[in-house]
Design a protein around this nucleic acid. Structure first.
Lengths: 128, 128
DNA sequence: TTTGTTATTGCAACTTAGTTGCAATAAATT
DNA sequence: AATTTATTGCAACTAAGTTGCAATAACAAA
């Protein structure tokens, strides 16, 4: 399962993330890297990095896919229940992982296996 | 803003929802109604009904758009802060509004304007 | 109930995010 | 260095959703 080879492309892509909690959209990555690699390569690397729990993905307000580094590195469970919310700024588009932990609600007769929580508003830079 | 005329198509589309809390995906609606109206008509009606606070939309796990009736009818604010979560069944695909109310977390230096909360798991019918 | 206004619709062509098959290339292992 | 096979580029494709425009049908007013 997943990433096996540390290719030039994989390194270049990971490099875009730096150390931050800030997420990047697939589109942004394709744009930034289009001189270095093909669009399908970007999509395929992202998929592999997610399979290997190095990145996680979520859907932004516009329906686009975003990726961010996993900071629970060391956690080797392939698909642990990920409960942190994401925040997307309505003004500048900045999208980030929040370190808050969200209580998963109990719903009668339902079993909850995963959650996705997106907050939309204004980020620290854009709240005036 | 929004729906002005009660056309045959608008009635047919609203009729698909019945009274339930169950949501319908745009694709499902296009499929169900394709003998009665054009695909773009479905999309445009959904947009108008949402503008008029008769429906609300959200994004499912697969990135597709879903719509459900607003049950806060009478509330005339065009864009009130909608905090109820949605649930999508991993097995049968059934997608519904939950009547639970979710506390919106405070995030330092951020202003939160809207939230979307999607729970994925097994619905009452599919939990065995 | 006819007329006039304009919101709504159908259609076909388009946009855009994301996917796929396959041959060529390049990590990693021996 | 030779071999194996994961990875990549490319070009063509899929699928959700959008758009411009001419034709049609609600609805208000006469």
């Amino acid at each position: 399962m997943g990433i096996i080879r540390k290719t030039k492309s994989v390194k270049a892509l990971l490099n875009e993330f730096g150390q931050q909690k800030t997420a990047l959209s697939t589109l942004e990555l394709v744009e930034r890297l289009h001189h270095q690699m093909n669009k399908s390569t970007v999509y395929r690397i992202l998929e592999r990095l997610e399979d290997n729990s190095i990145l996680h993905s979520f859907t932004g307000q516009d329906g686009l896919t975003w990726y961010a580094l996993n900071h629970n590195n060391g956690c080797s469970q392939p698909h642990h229940l990920n409960t942190h919310p994401h925040f997307q700024c309505r003004d500048c588009g900045k999208t980030e992982c929040l370190s808050v932990s969200i209580p998963i609600p109990e719903v009668a007769e339902h079993s909850i296996e995963s959650v996705s929580f997106l907050l939309v508003g204004k980020c620290a830079d854009c709240v005036s």
